Amino acid sequence: MPTVPRAVQKGVEDGAIRIRKATQAQLGQYLDGPEPGLPTAPLADSTINERIRLGFTPDDPGVRTGDMRESYGERVSGPGMKVAASIGSDDIKAVVFEVGRLEQGNYQPPRPELAVAAARNEDKVAHGVARVLVRTLCGRPLPNIPDDENTTP
Rank of each mutant, 00 (worst) to 15 (best):
L27F: 04
E74N: 15
E74Y: 14
K93C: 04
N49V: 06
L54G: 09
G37M: 03
T47C: 11
A84W: 11
A84N: 06
V63M: 07
D67H: 13
G33S: 01
V63G: 05
I17C: 00
P39V: 00
G33F: 11
M68F: 09
A22G: 01
D60V: 10
I19E: 12
G80I: 04
P39W: 01
Q26R: 15
R64H: 03
Q9G: 08
G62D: 07
V12F: 02
A94P: 00
G88D: 00
S71Q: 07
V8D: 06
I17D: 12
T40R: 02
A85P: 09
E70Y: 02
R69A: 07
M81Q: 13
P58S: 05
L31H: 08
D59N: 13
Y72F: 15
I48N: 08
T57Y: 10
S46K: 03
A22F: 01
G66I: 11
E13W: 13
E74A: 15
K93T: 04
A85E: 11
R64Q: 10
E74W: 13
P5W: 07
D67P: 10
I48K: 05
G80D: 10
D59P: 00
G73N: 09
M68I: 08
I52D: 07
V76I: 09
G28F: 00
I87E: 04
P34N: 06
F56I: 05
K10D: 08
I92N: 00
